[in-house]
Design a protein around this nucleic acid. Sequence first.
DNA 1: CGACAGGGTTTGATTTTCCTACTCACCGAC
DNA 2: GTCGGTGAGTAGGAAAATCAAACCCTGTCG
Lengths: 155, 155
Amino acid sequence: MTASKPQPRPCSIADALGVVGDKYALLVLRETLFGVRRFDAIARNTGAPRDILTARLRKLVEAGVLEKVPYQDRPVRYEYLPTKAGRELQPVLLLLKEWGDRHLAQTPPLVWEHDCGADVSARICCRACGEELRRGSVTPHYQVPGWSLAGPVEE
Amino acid sequence: MTASKPQPRPCSIADALGVVGDKYALLVLRETLFGVRRFDAIARNTGAPRDILTARLRKLVEAGVLEKVPYQDRPVRYEYLPTKAGRELQPVLLLLKEWGDRHLAQTPPLVWEHDCGADVSARICCRACGEELRRGSVTPHYQVPGWSLAGPVEE
DNA sequence: CGACAGGGTTTGATTTTCCTACTCACCGAC
DNA sequence: GTCGGTGAGTAGGAAAATCAAACCCTGTCG
């Protein structure tokens, strides 16, 4: 009788996707990071319906990814700025862009240039040892009561 | 009369999100990368309804992220393996995990250990110059006909 | 034989999304 | 002063996606 409703795996990836894991959230963040911060422009550039955009913006503000700031009074108008947490999602966008460019066979419309003059290609390294992270060099450890890597553990 | 339906910004981030930008796709991929590759186990660990999971798995196979492979005949049973393209999404999961751990105030249930013995903390560097990518050191360039960084350009 | 495992499909209710139109507050031109 | 435009949404209703639970099919085990 204890196993009434099996819960999914507790996981911070799932938590993060609860915030940005839908069709528009990351596109909205992309726009704000591009400097496009007003409702109408975000709606146009992402293609999000206006009511959905209203809901997403509210959710992202509540989650601390965006901040809603008035930029004029009379009439009061707001813009949406990425917070620190929002800016820390930029690498996720960069990786998705690179993955999309590599695997989705579209002409890459967007190039990100690094200060050094090169087009950005991300190299993901271990902060501790400096080595590039490769397939197989990273091992997940999963120690949550009642769970293993494979799934829930019966006691 | 030409501007009947304004298209959203063409962007490989949007293309990538067309494949993995929903509630379950990346959780399904997470499971396959954890070694959980069978329908029932993926359904249990992600919490996805079975019919939705069926649809997602099909979409991910079509997109070339997963591969559907029989692991026995009589009765034939399938498992889902990440392809090369699927494995290349692992860094996205790693970044989402780190972001979730940092900003969503849950005990991090999952630790990824690098070969060097340290818990993985990703450092994202420019492949060309080796410097760590920082806020402000990356500039998007957007050269698509009819578009600028800010939005569509009227001609 | 009946029970179970694995991988789904079906059904019907609930929830979200989408599209179009409308509002409200103000500004600037006529 | 009122007409038109801008910015940021709301409102209404149709269409699509999601959800939970039950069902199905193939084959194996006891």
